[in-house]
């Protein structure tokens, strides 16, 4: 499977080393993606990386990816300017089960760049494609200026009630300080009627899930997005194996109930 060529229409720096690309398909129609799926992004000659889809606009047809520079390939992607091209293979994997949120309280819990794969969930609520009884977004980041989509977060208030927490901030910061599980624990979660989508560092997901379970959210109503090394994204290269599962085709979004014992094993 070879990449399709996409052109960068808009490039926005979220904060140093983290950027969002809005891209259009060079030829043909853009692919349709479900929230929570990912693409393999190819920086010419440098290689491919799996990156969650942070937006797939229905109206403008633009594919959106938000990327944090960590290695050679993401550094090469960071250097790309508007008008330049990259390769896209995908979309791959299983996304968020938005249908299940219809008659529930939706709790979105995101840490750092983990907000990126959840952005399409918020947008589907905003434009009415997705529905939930009510939605709360708990967003934790390192610092106020290291939050994704800072200029959009306030508009999201139409669809979600937003609770934010950062590890470090000065006195101007109106939100919480500390890990996101703090405010999560203090909130009144209607456990049995809640469905939770969680994405962030594994440690943060671990603690968030603990709070959710203590609040009476059933394991079958907790969904999380996992990350592993990937080369092919099609279940053939073996890299993303996680116990009996392949993150690329069985995930990246899993129901906690299905993976509960595996999630506890370190170095799996």
């Amino acid at each position: 499977m070879i990449p399709r060529v996409y052109r960068i229409e808009h490039r926005r720096e979220e904060y140093p080393g983290t950027f969002t690309l809005e891209m259009s398909a060079d030829r043909g129609r853009p692919v349709t993606c479900d929230p929570g799926q990912f693409n393999m992004l190819y920086a010419f000659g440098a290689g491919e990386v799996p990156i969650s889809i942070s937006g797939a606009g229905r109206r403008d047809g633009l594919l959106v990816h938000t990327i944090r520079t960590q290695g050679l390939v993401t550094a090469a992607l960071e250097r790309l300017k508007e008008g330049e091209q990259l390769g896209v293979r995908g979309p791959f994997g299983q996304g968020w089960p938005l249908d299940l949120a219809r008659d529930s309280d939706l709790l979105i819990i995101a840490g750092g760049v983990g907000l990126a794969p959840l952005r399409p969930v918020v947008y589907s609520l905003l434009d009415g494609r997705g529905r939930a009884r009510r939605t709360q977004l708990y967003y934790g980041a390192r610092r106020p200026e290291e939050r994704l989509f800072r200029h959009e977060l306030n508009q999201w208030g139409r669809a979600v009630s937003l609770v934010q927490s950062v590890d470090h901030a000065d006195s101007d910061w109106p939100g919480h300080i500390g890990v996101i599980t703090g405010p999560l624990q203090a909130s009144r979660i209607n456990g049995p009627e809640t469905i939770a989508f969680v994405c962030g560092p594994e440690l943060m997901m671990r603690f968030s899930i603990r709070v959710l379970l203590e609040s009476g959210v059933p394991a079958s109503a907790i969904f999380l997005s996992m990350e592993r090394n990937m080369k092919c994204a099609t279940g053939l290269c073996g890299h993303c194996q996680w116990g009996p599962r392949f993150i690329c085709k069985d995930g990246p979004v899993f129901c906690y109930k299905d993976i509960q014992p595996w999630f506890q094993i370190r170095g799996l």
Partner: peptide
């Protein structure tokens, strides 16, 4: 054993 990796070059 079927695992593979990829190498990108210019």
């Amino acid at each position: 054993c079927f695992c593979s990796t990829v190498e990108d070059t210019t």
